[in-house]
């Protein structure tokens, strides 16, 4: 909880000058924050109105010059031709030419910060497919870290424009945010030491020490699936792997891709048992009620399914440990 707040206080201030309220806004308490949020939103709206006018003026100027010479547009953006109905989130982001996206910084193969400070992985690639569709240059895409517990607040407070962060779609979360996608179906599995023969799947975990991450969905799932197991919770799966190696726990459970990533680094020590026993559709979280934006993301995903960009994103990231590229899941255009 501590890290993201400081981080966000540092980052969006410079990155999103059109909404200074987001930077100065402290963690709002349930009651007193209400009024502050309200005035901030008003201020935002006024500034956005100004920005919109400015954007219109600039577009008009561009249009005039474009009449003179057809090829002096610098073609920096992947789809300059993108045009969106005024007032939509797409138009706002396209005109601003930048976007803030929440992703995991510690999730191997989905969102992992590399040595140069940029996140890499399947989620990041999916996010880039969307931002390309919005016509935003890649170097104007600002990734901020979201952890499991702060994804909804970040979306609700407008600190991020969307969240692509191994974000499982479920009904409770749908009350707070809306989901585009899913763009991937994950499944929870169990990892044990290579020489372990007593644990064969979720049904042989009674009395065993099972490790997962505190506050994670897999931890909640295993409470229901194997109530007799003894749950040990750390703040990261690498610690679970260490504990499994030391013999302090008997099994580690989370999404199979994450476990495959751990096994990939240490194939002599660990193995998967029992296949997957949950179905986790990963979606893209956006502000609740923004149906136009959701439809746009879903359309963009479907286009990427068709033209192979999705498969390319998969094979260059998760594909490193999952050799067979699966069929992409159909997007769920649910009505709430």
């Amino acid at each position: 909880m501590r890290v993201p707040f400081t981080r966000s206080r540092l980052q969006p201030a410079g990155a999103r000058p059109h909404s200074p309220a987001a930077a100065g806004r402290a963690v709002p308490s349930a009651r007193s924050g209400g009024t502050r949020l309200g005035s901030g939103a008003r201020r935002d709206a006024r500034r956005r109105g100004g920005a919109l006018m400015l954007g219109v003026a600039m577009l008009a100027a561009l249009g005039l010059t474009a009449c003179g010479s057809s090829d002096d547009g610098d073609s920096a953006t992947p789809s300059d031709s993108a045009s969106f109905a005024p007032g939509t989130t797409m138009a706002r982001l396209h005109d601003a030419g930048k976007i803030t996206i929440g992703t995991k910084f510690d999730q191997n193969y989905f969102g992992l910060k590399n040595l140069s400070g940029k996140p890499e992985g399947f989620d990041v690639e999916i996010a880039k497919i969307i931002t390309d569709g919005l016509g935003i240059p890649r170097d104007h895409v600002n990734f901020v870290e979201t952890v499991s517990a702060n994804r909804e607040p970040f979306i609700q407070q407008g600190r991020v424009d969307m969240v692509v962060a191994t974000y499982t779609i479920n009904d409770k979360r749908k009350k707070a945010v809306d989901f585009a996608g899913p763009y991937f179906i994950a499944g929870q599995s169990i990892m044990v030491a290579k020489n372990n023969t007593t644990i064969t799947g979720k049904d042989s975990l009674a009395g065993k020490k099972v490790c997962s991450v505190s506050g994670s969905t897999p931890a909640e799932n295993i409470r229901k699936v194997a109530p007799a197991a003894q749950l040990v919770l750390f703040d990261g799966y690498s610690k679970c792997a260490d504990a499994l190696k030391n013999g302090q726990v008997d099994a580690v459970t989370t999404d199979s891709v994450i476990l495959l990533g751990i096994i990939d680094k240490d194939p002599e020590a660990f193995k998967l048992v029992g296949g997957t026993f949950t179905r986790e559709p990963y979606g893209i979280g956006i502000h609740k009620g923004d149906t136009a934006f959701r439809t746009f993301i879903n359309d963009t995903l479907e286009a990427a399914y068709k033209d192979g960009r999705w498969a390319k994103a998969f094979s260059s990231t998760v594909g490193k440990v999952v050799p067979n590229t699966p069929t992409p899941p159909p997007v769920d255009r649910y009505t709430s």
């Binding site: 909880m1 709002p28 308490s29 349930a30 499991s148 517990a149 702060n150 994804r151 909804e152 607040p153 409770k172 979360r173 009350k175 707070a176 945010v177 505190s214 506050g215 994670s216 969905t217 931890a219 909640e220 749950l231 040990v232 919770l233 750390f234 703040d235 990261g236 610690k239 504990a243």
Partner: peptide, 28 residues
Amino acid sequence: AAFGVQELTGVVQRLTTANPDSVIAVLL
């Protein structure tokens, strides 16, 4: 909470995940 003991902070982490629509109440 980060080292295998489900004390108050661990519980808060667990409940914020389980109740994404009322994170602030759980934190309080």
